[in-house]
């Protein structure tokens, strides 16, 4: 269970550019939840993810994961239990290294001086074959030569190889063409279900925000303005979301990527 208690984050404090993105923000995520998050640009969605994964520390408040206080734990330590994918497929992999070398680092098995074993390769091959992208046939391939969709799918494998307690997906299909995006999204869904992962997914696609997950959050100005789960979420339609947003924020949804998708 992830408990976020009254976190606040201000960028450029003490300057004219000071901007408080999150103010006394609280959220509880139950085990097994698959939450989709929507909201306009600047609503604080990515800032929330950065706070959870430790990219920066919050100014105040605390974050508990399974009862453990991780508020001041550094990013690389949290990465053991928090997996994350970004919009940019380049973020999650080392481009100059091969598929199996990337997977080895993600797997984190064995001692520092151990090398890739036959068993590791077999394990990687099995993991990759579930992607159905033929990546397992050439694991010596340099990742920088792969397509965005393949890289994002590989990143997903790397992030979930040791099932994390929380998986954060930050518009991870937004940079892909529609067909590839749909494929990566369906892979994501099956990986999440298979490992029974707790997952938060930011998306600009209202339809996928409704199609996936058991709970939906609408964020605006650093606050959750709408929160629905279970049966209530199932009944929602895209048009409902647009009306809801106007009601809650007093303006139209200004994220043109949302409107166009």
């Amino acid at each position: 269970m992830l408990e976020i208690k009254k976190i606040t984050k201000t960028f450029n404090p003490g300057t004219v550019n000071a901007k408080t993105v999150l103010k006394d923000f609280s959220l509880t995520v139950n085990d097994g939840d698959f939450i989709t998050i929507i909201g306009a640009n600047g609503a604080g969605k990515s800032t929330l993810f950065n706070a959870i994964s430790g990219t920066f520390f919050t100014d105040s408040g605390s974050i508990f994961l399974d009862g453990k206080n991780i508020t001041l734990e550094s990013e690389y330590k949290r990465a053991r239990v928090i997996g994350r994918l970004f919009q940019d497929p380049k973020m999650g992999t080392a481009p100059g290294m091969s598929i199996e070398e990337n997977l080895t680092l993600a797997a984190g098995r064995g001692g520092w001086l151990s090398t890739i074993s036959k068993a590791d390769r077999e394990f990687f091959r099995q993991t990759l074959s579930s992607l159905d992208m033929d990546l397992e046939k050439n694991m010596g391939k340099i990742v920088g030569l792969m397509s965005g969709g393949q890289r994002q799918a590989l990143t997903l494998m790397m992030a979930t190889m040791n099932p994390p307690k929380i998986l954060l997906l930050d518009e991870h299909t937004a940079a892909l063409d529609p067909e590839t995006a749909a494929k990566v999204l369906s892979i994501t869904d099956s990986v999440v279900k298979k490992n029974n992962l707790t997952c938060l997914m930011i998306t600009h696609n209202m339809q996928s925000a409704l199609d996936y997950g058991n709970r939906i959050l609408m964020m605006d100005n650093g606050k959750v303005v709408f929160d629905a789960s279970g049966e209530e979420k199932k009944k929602l339609r895209v048009s409902d979301l647009l009306v809801l947003f106007k009601q809650k924020s007093g303006r139209m949804l200004d994220n043109d990527r949302i409107l166009l998708s």
Binding site: T93, T104, L105, G108, L113, I116, M158
Partner: peptide, 28 residues
């Protein structure tokens, strides 16, 4: 030999993409 070990791979990845190293729970 060294650059094929897990530590060696982590060093290569640090020069390649430090963010990826952190997300593999390795301290760059």
């Amino acid at each position: 030999f060294f650059l094929r070990t897990r530590l060696g791979l982590a060093i290569r990845a640090t020069g390649n993409n430090p963010a990826m190293v952190r997300s593999s729970s390795i301290n760059p």
